[in-house]
Amino acid sequence: MKKFKREYLIEELGLPYSLCNEYFIEDTIDYADCGLVDHTLIFRDVDGKTYRASYDKPEEPEDWTPWEDEEEVECQEVVPVKTIKWVDKK
């Protein structure tokens, strides 16, 4: 587990606003309820390691700031795993 400063993720890496930069890898929606959408963000830090962070985003994000109530964001280091998918033979 690694803690990142909220300002670093937003200002330096542009996350989660800029989902088309060299740090962004994946953003998935995990759950939506009561006007909030739970996201899981996968990103690569400048150290070359890959991390997972979670954040909530309102369905109507007018004045929204990610990780608004957190000075530091806990992120888990992650690695990709290849899987086998079986398909019909043609």
Rank of each mutant, 00 (worst) to 15 (best):
Y8R: 07
E26G: 07
I10W: 00
E71N: 11
P61T: 06
E7I: 09
D45Q: 04
E7R: 10
K82T: 09
D38F: 05
E68A: 14
Q76R: 04
E62T: 06
I42W: 00
Y8P: 03
G14T: 00
G14C: 02
V37M: 10
K82P: 03
V79L: 04
P80G: 01
F43D: 00
P61D: 09
K57F: 04
E59W: 15
R6C: 00
V73C: 01
T65Y: 07
E59V: 15
P61C: 07
T83S: 10
Y51R: 02
Y8N: 05
P58M: 02
N21Q: 07
D27N: 14
L19R: 15
E11Q: 12
S18A: 13
A53L: 06
L13C: 01
T40D: 03
V81I: 11
Y55D: 15
V46D: 15
I10E: 05
D45S: 10
V81N: 09
P16D: 05
Y8F: 11
D30L: 15
P66H: 00
Y23G: 05
Y55M: 10
V87F: 01
C34Y: 12
K2C: 02
K5L: 06
K57S: 11
I25L: 15
E60L: 14
K49W: 03
A32P: 03
I10L: 05
R52F: 04
K5D: 04
K90W: 09
E11V: 12
P16V: 04
K89F: 01
D30N: 14
R52S: 14
V73D: 00
E60R: 11
G14I: 00
L36E: 11
K49M: 08
D69A: 14
T40Q: 07
E12S: 06
E7D: 14
I29K: 11
D88G: 01
D56P: 11
K2S: 01
I10M: 06
Y8T: 06
C20P: 07
E68M: 10
E74S: 09
K90A: 04
D88N: 05
L36G: 07
H39S: 02
E26R: 06
R44K: 11
V78I: 11
G14F: 00
I25G: 14
T65A: 07
I10Q: 04
I84F: 08
F4I: 02
A32M: 13
H39L: 01
E68S: 14
T65W: 05
Y51C: 05
K89Q: 04
D38V: 08
I25E: 14
